[in-house]
Design a protein around this nucleic acid. Structure first.
Lengths: 154, 154
DNA sequence: TTTCATGTAATTATATATGTTACGTGATGG
DNA sequence: CCATCACGTAACATATATAATTACATGAAA
């Protein structure tokens, strides 16, 4: 992996959890789905837990469970829970003495804030249920062709 | 510096160039404005040159010149010329075998593409002339207070 | 009380962006 | 024509950010 992919990972794992509903699933199982490390899952999901999207229990038979129905969780909820940067635009200097740079920073701050609002607005209209609905067709097509779900053979 | 600040640097330098109009300015001068290295300027401005926003000449008296009037260059033009990532959202895997992850990637690609369009739309409505107009007032205010333009004392 | 699973700190690895050095190319002035 | 200047670029070094890993503590269940 290379870039900020926490949202991608979270969505992937959450949808798999939905298929195994109700069972508490360990970080290790979740990590195998995302081809990553259990600790990465715990870190990523810590925000989701704080946001009430998932719950975790310790000890025997413990693990992670989805606490909300799929249509009650939007991508914006998840994004917010993960507290990601989202936009890659940075500034050369945060508090410049130069008047020109001050004006540049102000203009960029403005545009970035607006872009963030617009993206958030878009993400808030997509629920996990919407994504799940897009998986169904793919699975059916492949199943008809006699394929198994090719999950992480690596 | 830390993050993707090429747009910030480019805007800062371009506006300073506008104040010294017509004279060819060396990478070294431009770099001193941005508190960076001449080579960084050359790299950053290579895209702007290809886009016809600035020109460069070699040899004695050579350097960089603005080729377009300030109101003919939008932030979207500059952004496009620099070819920056813009959005920080990445994917865990680019071409996953997993159907769930395929659906996640598709949805994210969609949302990101839309956000990019929206941000670009916003940036295309701001010209360098708009930014320059925002500098004037600040400078006047400070001059009245007896301050010099405090440029990069560090 | 042993085992299992999360919680979290600390460390290492890797990727990206930026800073720097070095050298090539073309243009200008003597 | 040749020394100088300035861009063009490759190669290398450094800094920061994200992810992967290790280690250990805490709490719950058998």
């Amino acid at each position: 992996m290379k870039r900020n992919s926490r949202l991608s990972v979270a969505l992937h794992v959450l949808l798999h959890m939905a298929e195994q509903a109700d069972k508490a699933l360990t970080s290790e199982v979740l990590a195998s789905w995302a081809a990553t490390n259990p600790v990465v899952i715990r870190r990523t999901f810590a925000g989701l837990r704080d946001a009430g999207i998932v719950g975790s229990t310790k000890g025997h038979g413990g693990g992670w469970t989805l606490l909300k129905p799929l249509d009650a969780v939007t991508l914006a909820d998840i994004q917010a829970a993960l507290d990601e940067p989202l936009l890659a635009l940075g500034k050369a200097e945060e508090s410049p003495g130069c008047l020109v740079e001050q004006a540049v920073n102000a203009a960029l701050d403005d545009a970035v804030a607006q872009a963030r609002r617009l993206l958030d607005e878009r993400l808030s209209k997509i629920t996990l249920a919407d994504l799940a609905a897009q998986i169904g067709p793919r699975r059916v097509v492949l199943a008809a062709a006699g394929c198994k779900d090719p999950h992480h053979e690596s």
